Simulated assay, not measured.
Amino acid sequence: MKEQIRKEMLGRLRDLPSRDRIRMEQELTTAVCNSNEWRASKTIGVTWSIFPEIDTHKIIQTGLEEGKRIVVPYSGKDRVMTFHEYSPDTAMSRSKFGIMEPVDKRNPVPPEAIDLLLVPGLAFSETGYRIGFGGGYYDRYLAAYNGHTLSVLFPFQLFKDPHWEIEAFDVPVQKLLTTAF
């Protein structure tokens, strides 16, 4: 079931008309950067997005402009994810999953130093449970993370009743932000 939903959501994300995507991404960026969680946070973890994901580059740029410490994930061995400080001069390279990650993996930022984590996903229940991209990296990370969690999503990614099984290791996202379609 999860694989079917992943495939459907990736298709819908790819097929979303550019004008709708741009408008909704702008609204989501504004909503994130105006949220109480964002305002209260000094260190923010965020994935360097790639199409067809919701674009996070403006969120990262805004955080840097506001003097926030931005940390980005690295997908390590044994499906263990670590976060590393990001600045515009951080060397990045494409991972085996196709996502951009920091080249320098020394000095990971511990979970307790991250105030807010923007959690990616493909489908979300109204109670914050999510279907990610299938690697389990975020599920493992969230199991030991105690800060605030927030996800941004397009309206079609939100399910009133989850059409998938919630598993024991699933950790719900605390706050979901979406837009009108």
Score class of each variant (00 low, 15 high):
127 T>S: 14
85 E>G: 03
179 T>E: 05
40 A>G: 04
178 T>V: 13
28 L>W: 02
23 R>F: 09
58 K>A: 09
74 Y>I: 05
79 R>V: 03
71 V>W: 02
31 A>S: 14
54 I>C: 03
100 M>N: 04
24 M>E: 02
90 T>C: 12
76 G>D: 14
19 R>H: 13
38 W>A: 01
103 V>Y: 07
40 A>T: 09
168 A>F: 08
100 M>H: 08
134 G>E: 08
112 E>W: 12
175 K>P: 01
157 Q>L: 10
17 P>S: 13
56 T>P: 00
66 E>D: 05
28 L>T: 01
179 T>R: 03
86 Y>S: 03
46 V>I: 15
97 F>T: 02
138 Y>A: 01
167 E>P: 01
173 V>K: 02
98 G>M: 09
103 V>Q: 04
58 K>G: 02
80 V>L: 10
114 I>M: 09
109 V>N: 05
166 I>V: 12
75 S>G: 05
87 S>G: 10
98 G>C: 07
91 A>E: 15
174 Q>H: 09
36 N>I: 06
126 E>D: 11
6 R>W: 08
176 L>M: 14
159 F>L: 15
85 E>M: 10
5 I>V: 13
24 M>Q: 07
60 I>P: 00
139 D>W: 05
164 W>S: 04
119 V>F: 03
106 R>D: 06
66 E>C: 03
59 I>M: 10
3 E>T: 14
64 L>P: 00
58 K>W: 11
138 Y>E: 01
173 V>P: 00
66 E>P: 00
129 Y>C: 03
35 S>V: 07
102 P>W: 12
25 E>I: 10
148 H>M: 13
156 F>S: 02
42 K>I: 10
147 G>A: 13
52 P>S: 12
35 S>C: 05
149 T>A: 06
23 R>Q: 11
92 M>S: 06
122 L>C: 07
63 G>P: 01
58 K>L: 11
88 P>C: 13
158 L>K: 13
153 L>H: 09
37 E>Y: 04
137 Y>C: 00
18 S>C: 11
108 P>K: 05
66 E>S: 04
41 S>I: 02
77 K>Y: 12
78 D>K: 14
126 E>S: 12
23 R>Y: 09
32 V>R: 02
108 P>D: 05
7 K>I: 10
79 R>A: 04
163 H>Y: 15
85 E>W: 10
21 R>V: 03
59 I>S: 00
5 I>L: 13
37 E>W: 08
177 L>K: 04
33 C>S: 10
175 K>R: 12
169 F>H: 13
134 G>Y: 09
71 V>Y: 01
111 P>I: 11
82 T>P: 00
13 L>H: 04
123 A>L: 13
123 A>H: 06
160 K>A: 10
175 K>L: 12
166 I>G: 04
127 T>V: 09
179 T>P: 00
144 A>Y: 10
90 T>K: 11
124 F>L: 07
80 V>W: 10
38 W>T: 00
56 T>M: 07
136 G>I: 07
102 P>Q: 15
69 R>K: 14
158 L>G: 05
59 I>F: 03
25 E>K: 04
49 S>L: 09
128 G>Y: 11
135 G>I: 09
123 A>P: 04
155 P>W: 15
84 H>E: 01
143 A>W: 13
7 K>A: 11
7 K>H: 12
4 Q>R: 14
35 S>G: 06
77 K>I: 14
178 T>K: 05
128 G>L: 13
59 I>A: 02
40 A>Y: 06
